[in-house]
Design a binder for these strands. Structure first.
Lengths: 217, 217
DNA sequence: AGACTCTCGTTACCGCAAGTAACACATGCA
DNA sequence: TGCATGTGTTACTTGCGGTAACGAGAGTCT
């Protein structure tokens, strides 16, 4: 039975290869979390106890490795978010719980978060060039300015200043992400998007009714 | 009048240097807009008709150059946003006009936008490693998933699908930016931030009264 | 005039990281 | 014994960021 033997062997090898891959990913994880995303392939290979070419055979190039790494964390995060989003509760409660889940996740493992979202700023000194040092400042500046405007013009009662700041950054982020998506896909006209976002800010989400079948989002 | 002569000369030199700096920045601008943010210092120097060390004398390092480059565009964008935000009109109208301004800007010059916000993805082939290819996918995936949930559970009437997608990406962006800011400054507890964002989504911005003095934001 | 110095510019180099080619050892199969 | 295949290595190339060292021109001081 050569074929069976051969298939068995193939299967063994494949599973061994996947096992190996997992090990490599865990080593890479350790290094990236320690040295920041600027970690070199040499360092990762050393941590795994092997040398560079093996990494390249498994992941193609550095982008492949990082993508695999990111996918793991991303999938985990998305799963927990989905759970919060699907829990049986009122809509507002679910929104709060989802926000809570996300914030708790980034709070619990800020290094992972920084890797996923700010893949530049290495921890020590530097490491070449901090690509990505610009977007954050721009968003921050916009958020701060908007917060000032809100705090100065809208009456939010006690604790209004912090509310204004959270809103400033939140609204800017909303604009940024929606704009980014819209620019890539062009699913509608600019005016339509503006209306959609303004409607969102104007509480249309709270006012909308539940869809037939099951509790509303 | 040595001193006067000397000051004149100094002034001349300084202004000449600034002039030069502007020229270099414009050359860098051209290259970056053509080759993407992965543009090499050699390429930029060549475009400006000089060689690398001069760039380094002017901007210190690559980060300095990019920061200077980013500052120009950032300042311009912020100025127009401020104008829209300060225009005399009702609050909702101003919000719409600000959103419109932002979206129009990124629509008009997507390359500049990509440089400011997605400082990795070079246009041709690649250029080393695309740091930052992960954050976008994660945000996109979250946005799409949220959009699905919204569309499937909330009754938004006609055109609800696109509305849901815009909201999905917008809400995710809000969460992301607010979380990022909060993680950096820790200005309040997690629960407070959750409440603030949920309140925002629940239309508290629309309901809030204007502050004393002038038309509300 | 000639030495000083200051800025602008160059060439040639270093260090380092990504990615690759070529070779070496084991192990199962004919 | 020969050979194919997966696993690992060393040693290399290429390209980039960054720097040191040197050269040329123009104004300045004695």
């Amino acid at each position: 039975m050569e074929t069976t033997q051969r298939t068995d062997q193939r299967a063994e090898q494949r599973s061994a290869a996947e096992q190996r891959r997992r090990e490599l990913l865990e080593a890479a994880d350790r290094v990236v979390l320690r040295d920041g995303p600027g970690a070199s392939m040499n360092a990762i290979a050393a941590e795994a106890g092997i040398t560079k070419p093996i990494l390249y055979r498994h992941f193609g190039d550095k982008g492949g490795l990082y993508a695999a790494l990111a996918k793991r964390h991303t999938d985990a995060l998305l799963a927990s978010l989905r759970a919060a989003l699907d829990a049986p509760a009122q809509r507002r409660r679910r929104v709060e719980s989802t926000l809570e889940t996300y914030l708790a996740a980034i709070e619990a493992r800020p290094q992972v978060y920084r890797f996923l979202m700010h893949p530049a700023e290495g921890s020590p000194a530097d490491s070449g060039f901090d690509v990505g040092r610009h977007s954050a400042p721009l968003l921050r500046r916009m958020g701060e300015e908007l917060a000032e405007v809100i705090e100065e013009r809208v009456d939010l009662g006690p604790g209004g200043q912090q509310l204004a700041r959270a809103w400033g950054h939140g609204i800017v982020g909303m604009m940024h992400a929606a704009g980014d998506w819209w620019l890539g896909e062009r699913p509608c006209s600019r005016t339509e998007l503006v209306r959609a976002l303004a409607d969102l800010l104007w509480g249309r989400l709270a006012d909308a009714g539940d869809r037939a079948g099951g509790p509303g989002f």
